[in-house]
Design a protein around this nucleic acid. Structure first.
Lengths: 133, 133
DNA sequence: TTCTCCCTAAGACGTAATGTCTGAGTTTAG
DNA sequence: CTAAACTCAGACATTACGTCTTAGGGAGAA
């Protein structure tokens, strides 16, 4: 039975973000990035967070090049966004993503110029798709 | 200092959903809806969940009509959607909602006919707004 | 060969959140 | 007066979380 997709905690996300900034990294690499002045305790914290991310299928560990092990993220930012949006949809909207989309489009907060440009290009693309059944 | 907006737990959400289905309710009403065969322990669970929802400013308690107290939700489904979307944006996108919108529009899962119609009317509305600077 | 450093593995720890449950006191209706 | 309903407050067990310690292995340098 497939394990339910799981969320990640804030500290785990910090680790993932550091992995997204590199194609792969060692525990030492991540510790230097995230816990620069913490010595062995920072190292162990990163170890524990990577262990939990492994269990959540969010990273893979490559032992083949001997110590140190190398780690890569197996989930990217967009996939996490998707998981979290799906979780909101399942929790509040019976699984439908449309209320989320509706909410985002109708929000009262004005968009920045660059955000609006991104949205306009998305709308144009969607209309293009709509005109080709 | 304003309390940071808080999320609600699954059990708290069950209580809110029962309140959304009624304009207002008593603890007994909610217990009969959510914990129909649990006796005093179900009653106490609803009490505790309402207490925590009060602390999170998600419900108000009206004591003015004497026992029993009456409860109303002060947050609706759309407001909770907004809070959760904002939390996803802050956690993964530096606060910007556009990546969430982009993700929702680009998802590969086909929309149902009614969902697509909703989306089309939203796009039309947005374009209308765009043509009126 | 020994020592030091780096690394892995495993668990402990304290705190907070969560859902559930018990007990005591108050109020109201019969 | 009694019983039922209600309120108030806390206890409890479990889980999650971030941090930290300890022990052992491996490799390189002295």
């Amino acid at each position: 039975m497939a394990r339910p997709t799981q969320d990640v905690t804030d500290a785990e996300l910090q680790v993932l973000q550091a992995l997204w900034d590199r194609s792969r990294a060692t525990i030492r690499d991540l510790t230097e990035a995230l816990y620069p002045d913490e010595g062995t305790s920072g190292y162990a914290t990163v170890q524990k967070l990577l262990e939990r991310l492994e269990q959540k299928d969010c990273v893979v560990r490559d032992r083949s090049e001997g110590p140190p092990h190398w780690f890569q993220a197996t989930v990217n930012r967009d996939a996490l966004i998707g998981r979290r949006l799906q979780a909101v949809a399942e929790s509040l909207c019976g699984g439908s993503l449309v209320p989320l989309l509706s909410h985002l489009v109708q929000q009262s907060q004005p968009l920045s110029a660059s955000d609006r440009k991104t949205l306009e290009s998305l709308i144009a693309r969607l209309e293009q798709e709509r005109d080709q059944p």
